[in-house]
Amino acid sequence: MRVRRELLRSGRPWWLSHGLLAIPLALIAAITVLDISTPTSIHLGPFLVAAPAITASFAGPGLTGAIGALAVAAQILIGRLHGGLTTPNHQAQIAALIVISVLVTVFRYARDRHQRQLSQVRSVAAAAQQVLLWPLPHRIGRLRIESAYISAEAEAEIGGDLYGAVPVPGGTRLVIGDVRGKGLAAIGEAAALVGAFRGSAYRHLPLTALAAHLGNSVYWNLAHAPEEDLESFVTALVLDVHDDEPAIEMVNCGHPPPILLGDGRIRSLEVAEPAVPLGLTAPAESDYKVESFTFGPDEVLLLYTDGVIETRNRSGAFYPLTDRLALWNEPDPAALVRRLHDDLLRYADGNLGDDVAMVAITRPPEPESG
């Protein structure tokens, strides 16, 4: 049972690890038989070191040490049958095999310990993502929503991009934003902004008042941040999607404009007077202006952060977002986000220079009564 637990901890299926274990065992048996059968002038015992080395590639330290001990026992048996254990040659071979087996076992133990620590860090990051950046529901009212997040950090689950959605009377309110910079400071600012957005949901503020509330929240947090973070800011987009009319209302605070897809057309929802990014000043409600756009049934609204359009390929060319969207003409938000996610990673060869967040929204036609 202990051997089986070792194999299960190695991360491979039991049947596969069980088959791999036969390799070092067969190697020990074959080398022992061949060495005993050959003249004493031929020494095959040193090849026994391959058994614990191979075992370390798929099993834990306990099983690696056991195979190493079995290899040492085989070397002792060979020595007894080939002139005795007192010969300097056999003593040197046994000592060398013991040292190498111990080293391989220690290295495997250190690797397993590092893997456990890395798994714990990843689990904490995943838990933090669930707390700080809740996955958006696939449905809110009549809306169908799909979202995706890609962190630029290789081992991270979250970064400085953010999004959120809450139901409000008569519709759904959404936010998407991008904190300048990366790392822990960006994560903290993103968490503060998402918290302020959720905390204001029950107050049913107008969009201009919500934007001012978020701007003051970011400004206050940055005022109490370390000196190196004082020049940070957040681009953001807040919008209401109405239930009873084919329209959205939006306040843009220096964020890339959303894209509306439908009827074979692609429209960039540019506002006439975008506000400055959040955190640069302590804003008032009058600093923001709401602009309205049509958003009909079966159209898809794509929100995204600038990590999408600033992704580069090997030649340094930016990602052609509108060209890709026109080529796909994808009406399903889940399929659109999945395609965009995979295509971005392919375009950048898996090495994104910035965090990426994307949200696709559609409103199916209301079913006819009767």
Rank of each mutant, 00 (worst) to 15 (best):
Leu77Ala: 12
Ala152Lys: 07
Gly183Glu: 07
Asp323Ala: 13
Pro277Val: 04
Glu231Asp: 15
Ser292Pro: 01
Val218Ala: 14
Tyr304Asp: 11
Ala357Val: 11
Asn329Tyr: 04
Phe58Cys: 09
Val359Arg: 13
Leu136Met: 08
Glu227Asp: 09
His213Phe: 00
Gly264Phe: 03
Leu261Thr: 03
Val49Thr: 11
Arg4Cys: 11
Thr322Leu: 12
Pro364Gln: 06
Thr32His: 14
Val33Cys: 03
Ile31Trp: 01
Leu97Gly: 06
Ser101Thr: 10
Val271Cys: 05
Ser119His: 07
Pro256Ala: 09
Ala92Tyr: 03
Arg363Tyr: 11
Asn89Phe: 12
Ala348Gln: 06
Glu6Arg: 00
Gly45Met: 09
Pro258Thr: 03
Ala96Asp: 12
Trp328Asn: 04
Arg111Ala: 15
Ile54Lys: 00
Pro297Phe: 06
Ala334Leu: 14
Ala95Trp: 04
Ile23Asp: 07
Asp287Phe: 08
Leu21Cys: 09
Gln115Ser: 05
Gln129Cys: 01
Glu245Met: 13
Gly65Phe: 13
Gly183Val: 06
Leu210Met: 08
Ala284Lys: 14
Leu325Asn: 05
Glu285Leu: 10
Arg111Ile: 07
Arg113Ile: 13
Ala247Ser: 15
Ala95Tyr: 06
Gly170Ile: 10
Ala96Pro: 00
Ala59Trp: 01
Val337His: 08
Tyr347Thr: 02
Val300Met: 02
Gly177Phe: 06
Ser123Gln: 09
Tyr109Leu: 08
Ala317Asp: 13
Leu222Gln: 12
Ile23Val: 15
Gly164Phe: 10
